[in-house]
Design a binder for these strands. Structure first.
Length: 253
DNA sequence: CGCGAGTTCCTGACCTTGGC
DNA sequence: GCCAAGGTCAGGAACTCGCG
């Protein structure tokens, strides 16, 4: 479990964030809430957090100061929440290597995706409070980068978030150029990222068709296809038969 | 190794058709 | 009416190429 510190002067919005979903299900514990940046610093020094979420709309420049303080002695992931009017402040924060930014009001699926990305990184490296560990982490990252991409795809499929899988998103998460990561993936795996993603989705769809009574549209949705028609096309081109025919053949064996 | 520009191709959206 | 299946097209994501 990764411990989260929420910094938000607005108790109502803090409560809303807490209740967006069950944080424990995603592997996070959100119990601590600081209403001021000074209280946040106190808590940060006392507890061992894995993530800090800051409502920049409410804190403004104090939020930036808080980012500066956290960054001085730590590489802890920082997630900002702010509105369209906070552009200048967010721009400042980006210079402090803030990990991500979500527009307010936060949507549950957006935050969930963001947390999964952060969790991927946290699982990979335990670089919470020691900047010296970053160089080691980056070294590991570049060595096993494709492994991380594949792992992310697999976990996203498991958690039914496959429709959100994009190479662009993964490249941002891993601090790589999108085109470079695509090249690297193809070189190592002898197939493009899209081909790999398609293969994983289709194999999962085949498994679901063989072992469950789910409707075709449910299977399509489960493996990440929003549009059923596109799933039909891809499935047929991958397997050579229609989804229904495939189930018929598989279950008659 | 890493990035940017241009090109290719995938995806989502909308529609139609046919079978049950 | 519901579900399965296919056609078309615009926009965006992924890929390729070339360069530093």
């Amino acid at each position: 479990m990764f411990k989260v510190l929420l910094v938000d002067p607005n108790c109502r919005s803090a409560e809303t964030i807490k209740k967006l979903f069950n944080w424990n299900d995603l592997g996070f514990i959100l119990e601590d809430h600081a209403e001021t940046s000074s209280r946040a610093v106190d808590l940060f020094n006392m507890e061992n957090y894995s993530l800090v979420i800051i409502n920049i709309t409410e804190l403004k420049d104090k939020g930036i100061q808080l980012c500066e303080i956290l960054r001085k002695g730590s590489l802890i992931p920082i997630l900002l929440i702010g509105g369209p009017k906070d552009f200048l402040i967010i721009r400042k924060a980006l210079n402090l290597q803030v990990n991500d930014y979500l527009p307010a009001p936060v949507q549950s699926d957006e935050l969930r995706t963001c947390l999964l990305l952060i969790k991927q990184n946290l699982k990979r490296y335990s670089l919470i409070k020691n900047p010296e560990q970053l160089s080691n982490a980056v070294y590991i990252q570049s060595e096993d980068i494709i492994g991380q991409v594949k792992k992310y795809v697999a976990e996203s499929l498991d958690e039914s978030l496959s429709k959100r899988i994009t190479l662009k998103e993964i490249s941002v998460m891993l601090n790589y150029n999108c085109s470079y990561l695509g090249q690297k993936f193809k070189y190592q795996e002898k197939m493009t990222f899209n081909d790999y993603l398609l293969k994983q989705r289709m194999e999962r769809a085949k498994h679901l068709l063989e072992n469950t009574n789910m409707k075709i549209y449910e299977v399509a949705n489960e493996v990440g296809y929003v549009e059923l028609d596109w799933f039909y096309k891809k499935f047929k081109s991958y397997t050579g038969v229609n989804a229904n025919k495939y189930r018929e053949l598989a279950t008659s064996k």
